[in-house]
Design a binder for these strands. Sequence first.
DNA 1: ATGGCGAGAGGATCTCGA
Length: 261
Amino acid sequence: MKVATWNVNSVRIRLEQVTQWLQDNPIDVLCLQETKVVNENFPRSSFTDLGYHTYVFGQKSYNGVALVSRSPLSDVSMGFGAILPEATVGDLDEQKRVITGVVDGIRIVNLYVPNGSAIDSDKYIYKLGWLKVLREYLQVLLQQSNSLLMCGDFNIALEDIDIHDPKNRATQVMATDVEREALQNVLSLGLADVFRKFTPEGGNFSWWDYRTGAFRRNAGWRIDHHYTTPDLYERSLSCTIDTTPRKLVQPSDHAPVIIEF
DNA sequence: ATGGCGAGAGGATCTCGA
C-alpha cells in the first residue's frame, strides 16, 4: 500500500497535475493540504472518475484538507472537535486542518499544521497552541489503534539537515527550537520519522520557495512528513519525495512525499 | 534590508503562505 502527502496549494488550480500524477503513480491514499475550496466546490468527480473516494474538510480561500482513497475509508472524521471536548478545542476547528480515516487497519491522520508567519506573532502562538492540542488528539486515537500514520505539511523542519541553509534558523519560523520541541513533544507519544529510516543524509527537501529560483538551486526545506507508530515503521518499505511535479509549469511549491508498506 | 512568487477574492490591490 502507498500513501502520499501533498500540499497542492489550491486543488482547483492544480487539478490537472494532481490527477495526472495519480494516473502515473499507483497511490492508494492521497492526503491533500491547502485545497483552498469549500466542500461543495471540491472537484470530486475528477477523482471519482479515476476510481477514488473523496473525503473533504474545506474552507474558502485558506487551508482545507482532503483524503482521496482507492478503497472506502472507515471512521472518517474532521477536525479536533470530533475526538476532543469543545473546551479543549476552542475555535481551532474554524481553520480546516485535520482529517482522518482508517484503511486496512491503519489510522491515517492528514494534517496541515499552521505556518506561524513570524516568531512571536499571534500566528506563531496559535501554531504552538495547535500542536499542544494535536498531542491530546493523537493520545486519544492511539488508545484506539496501534497502527497510526500521521502525515501532512508540518511547517517544521525537525533537524538542521532538513534545511538547505540552517545558519539563521534560530530566528526563522519553521525552524526554531520552540517549534521543534513542540513537534518532538507530539512525537514522544511513540511516532517516528519514516523518511529518516531510509535516508540519513541531508539535501532532500519537500518545499522550495517560489521566489529567487529556490527550486533550481535546491534551496529547500523538508517540512512534509510521514510519522508512524513502531509497527508501521518496521513494515515500511520506502519513503520518498517525488520532485517531478515541482518541475512542471505552474507547480505547487511542495512536492508529494510517498510512503510504502 | 527588502522583496522576490503565487493563489484567492473581487474587480485594484489587498491578505496569506513559507
